[in-house]
Nucleic acid binder design. Structure first.
Lengths: 293, 293
DNA sequence: CAACTTACCTGACTATAGTCTGATATTATC
DNA sequence: GATAATATCAGACTATAGTCAGGTAAGTTG
């Protein structure tokens, strides 16, 4: 009964019955699952038939019939694509939008009910985030983002909060050398955000100066996403982009209070160097020579 | 993106696709889901047709056809019930058993893969336990158990470990007054274990003396099951059983290091009294008069 | 022992999801 | 401008899951 495998299987049982039920929020509105899923995909912003087909993994014949059904119900309209008349564009009608809203409301209500019934919803959410990231690890997407975007600012906020917790002397951004956002955007540098199913769970910045040397900044992975190798993926990606930008050497500063990060750097070809700035927080400095090929 | 409801819905998306896949371990052996589920139910110990029907929520006609299918495949045998020839008993044949084992192996393998890929499997398991208990809260079953059973011993072990962590001076069972198991079994007392999908997640003991006064002992709820109101359920149940056993007054001892417990006692009609034993660990004592009706 | 209930079975029927083949219109390619 | 590729549509077909009405044999009750 303490066997880890048994515990995972118990989880699966508990969750299939409950989440299965959540999934069937698609039902309960007198529409079969298939049609409801298509309606939902459209409501969530898919506009092209082929993109819906890919997303839901449907046969083109089936897809076509489901669309005709929705059209006859007056929930959607279809047009041909202005640039390519073979492709079709799908859009919700007003009735369709309100049907979609009803599905959304149902789904939100069920989510809220779960939380309300629990006396420690924050803990439950943390656990759910962790499980969701573990399950969705293959779908974690890393994308270049404006460091002033809301996702980026969210990541940075969490990063600073974590530093404040972990540094003995606390942490205040204003006292640190905060890079200008232009330096962390193409063509000088970049800023990457990793997201799992839409939730930002990690970031890293590349602060360029226009020259052939740049600095890696703000490497952060959400607690719920640790153990998935995400930090390494972020670093690999940022190095690739640095090469792309003709940067030959990377540097970074860090702190002894972050041993996991230092371990990662040492394991991935970074070497410790002397202090190269007068920022009050870092106490350890690394560099890495990039080899272009 | 920090909206709790959105986080729950993200969890559901992540988990339906993954656990959906786990569920489909039923597939991949060339058998449709319905038949596979019946085979699994039989393998997990259901022997009567009606019990399988209840468990899986199947129509009797459908059930019958699924059974005929399995019979023709040579995976099961059916007999009539010796006491009641209308009822039917189902049993796996040797081939059926090995098919079932194959499903089990598949399912175990998928569970193991998930854990192996994670670098902090213990944390992942803890989060999964928490979520599973929250989702399965309506299926948490409290049952009377021999305090020497393996479930009971597991709960007690966890309970002692938690006391050792939370008491400043540590905790050793041998120094505490450990009740004789006979005193925590009918007709003198009882021992309750709460389980969610087979995993023990809480316990409580009622130590009787044969007289009309008894003591509540060993109230424990697993960390993953806190916030679900389980402690209260355990206490309510134990009080009901005490009344059943013609016990009129309950007592218990506890410690300031366990404030949640004390809060629960105060909220449910217990009043603090003077020390009534010389056990070295407790520092606070309660009693409750039971009113029979 | 007649009337009823229970547990299961059977056959006819339906809904949903999905496959496959081929048609049609449009665009891309040599 | 013929040929190929692409995107969708339409119709015929299948598998799975499920419902429903009625039937049968075994048990229960007054």
């Amino acid at each position: 009964m303490l066997d880890p495998v048994a515990r995972v299987r118990r989880f699966n049982r508990a969750v299939t019955s409950e989440v299965g039920a959540l999934d069937n929020s698609f039902l309960g509105r007198g529409r079969p699952l298939g049609v409801a899923r298509v309606l939902n995909a459209i409501g969530h912003g898919h506009t092209e038939v082929s993109s819906i087909r890919d997303y839901l993994g449907l046969d083109s014949g089936l897809m076509s019939r489901l669309l005709r059904g929705l059209e006859e119900e007056g929930l959607i309209e279809t047009f041909s694509h202005p640039q390519d008349a073979r492709r079709r564009i799908v859009r919700l009608t007003e009735i369709g939008q309100s049907e979609f809203d009803a599905y959304e409301a149902l789904s939100n209500h069920q989510a809220r009910t779960l939380l309300v019934r629990h006396s420690q919803p924050e803990e439950l959410l943390r656990a759910m985030d962790l499980v969701a990231s573990a399950f969705g690890r293959d779908r974690i997407a890393i994308k270049e983002t404006d460091p002033r975007s809301s996702e980026a600012r969210y990541c940075l906020g969490e990063y600073y909060a974590e530093l404040a917790r972990r540094f003995e002397s606390g942490f205040e951004v204003s006292r640190s050398r905060d890079p200008a956002s232009k330096d962390m955007m193409r063509p000088r540098g970049t800023f990457l955000v990793a997201a799992s199913d839409g939730l930002p769970i990690g970031c890293v910045g590349l602060k360029g100066s226009g020259g052939d040397i740049a600095e890696v900044k703000r490497l952060w992975v959400a607690p719920s996403a640790r153990g998935l190798g995400l930090a390494r993926r972020l670093m690999t990606t940022v190095e690739k982009i640095a090469l792309d930008l003709s940067i030959e050497k990377l540097r970074l500063d860090t702190n002894r209070a972050l041993p996991e990060a230092q371990q990662l750097y040492r394991r991935t070809g970074w070497t410790e160097i002397d202090r190269f700035n007068d920022d009050p927080y870092p106490d350890t400095f690394f560099e890495k020579q990039l080899c272009p090929h």
